[in-house]
Amino acid sequence: MRKQFKKLKRTEKDWKQNIVILGIVFVVTIILFLFFPSKREVMIVTFEKFFIEMISILPAVLILMGLFTVFISKKMVMRYLGEAAGIKAIFLGILMGALPTGPLYIAFPIASVLLKKGVRVASVVSFLSAWACIKIPQEMVELQFLGFKFMALRLFLTIIFVIIMGIFIEWAVKLTNQK
């Protein structure tokens, strides 16, 4: 309870800090806008374009994140990953990590429990990496701003390398354990 309260306090402080930053950027923008009439048109067009592009997908992305947070519990992730074996465990690790359910520090305790439960190291590593960089809403924002080719190719390469890394780390851990 107390911990939760502390966390709430912190996010509130962060929020105020972000408002201050926004205020500073806003004032600088207004000053430059007033002093450089020749730049006004570019500024308005750019702001409008990026603002519309962001606001047209932001609610959808946030709703997806909210829904996944509520519907997919830590317990579910642990149950699914805890039972899987073989190469399936690695893919399941990536899939579970890719579900949009909050920042990386939430994934650490899950990973810790999974390791203690004896889940494959490769699966836990791919789970952590996917949680960090293959989040579904994140891919959507990337699609919107950087285009399909960039997003798809980066996603494909990331998945391939994450799998290789998972298997390699598992192998290295086994090797050092034997010594």
Binding site: T11, W15, I21, L22, F26, V28, M43, F50, P59, F68
Partner: peptide
Amino acid sequence: QGVVIALRNFIKIIPTILAVILSITL
């Protein structure tokens, strides 16, 4: 509950997003 979380996150992130868009503009 999920929608409420989304709304809360929206309020949380909107100042940062506006600041970044303004920076991009500059």
